[in-house]
Amino acid sequence: TGIVNVSSSLNVRSSASTSSKVIGSLSGNTKVTIVGEEGAFYKIEYKGSHGYVAAEYI
């Protein structure tokens, strides 16, 4: 489990890349469940599926 540490919002992406499609966003202080790690990204549970967020902001 981690907490989103941004002042505005954090993009949730379809894969572990900044060039991948943005599938949603999370606001600051949102609690997320981390299920894996790929490079600089965490794989998280997101809306019944999975998404990827930049690990530096969690």
Rank of each mutant, 00 (worst) to 15 (best):
Y46H: 04
I3T: 09
G39V: 03
S8P: 12
E56R: 12
V22D: 03
G39C: 05
V32H: 01
T30S: 13
S20A: 13
K43P: 01
V6L: 08
S14P: 05
K47W: 06
S19C: 12
A40M: 12
I3N: 06
K31S: 09
A55G: 05
E45N: 08
S25T: 15
S27M: 13
A54V: 13
S20H: 05
K31A: 10
E37D: 06
A40G: 14
V22A: 06
Y42V: 06
S49M: 12
S9E: 11
T1F: 15
I44Y: 01
Y46I: 03
N11T: 13
F41D: 03
I23W: 02
S49T: 12
V53L: 03
S27V: 12
I44F: 01
T18E: 13
L26A: 03
V32P: 01
S14G: 10
S9L: 11
N11P: 15
V32F: 04
A16C: 06
V53T: 01
S14F: 12
V22S: 06
K21A: 13
A40P: 10
G48N: 08
I44K: 00
E38D: 09
Y46F: 13
I34W: 04
S49H: 10
E56G: 07
T18R: 10
T1Q: 13
G24F: 07
G36D: 07
S9Q: 11
S9H: 12
Y46A: 00
T1P: 08
E37A: 13
V6Y: 07
I44H: 00
T30A: 11
G2K: 06
S9I: 11
V4Q: 04
S49C: 09
Y57V: 04
A54G: 08
Y52T: 00
K21R: 11
T33A: 07
T30V: 09
R13I: 08
F41H: 04
Y46S: 00
T18P: 14
T18A: 14
V4P: 04
S15D: 11
S49V: 11
T30H: 07
V4F: 04
Y57E: 07
S17R: 06
V4T: 07
Y46G: 00
H50G: 04
E37M: 15
S15N: 09
T33P: 03
S8A: 11
V53Q: 00
L10K: 02
S19G: 10
S20I: 03
S19R: 09
E37C: 15
I44L: 02
V35R: 04
E56Q: 13
I34Q: 01
S25N: 09
K21M: 12
Y42A: 03
H50C: 09
E37S: 14
S17N: 11
S27P: 15
K47V: 05
S19K: 11
S25W: 14
A54R: 13
L26C: 04
S25L: 13
F41C: 03
I44A: 00
G36L: 05
T30P: 03
V35P: 01
V53F: 03
L26M: 06
E37N: 09
N5A: 09
L26W: 02
R13N: 11
I58A: 01
I44N: 01
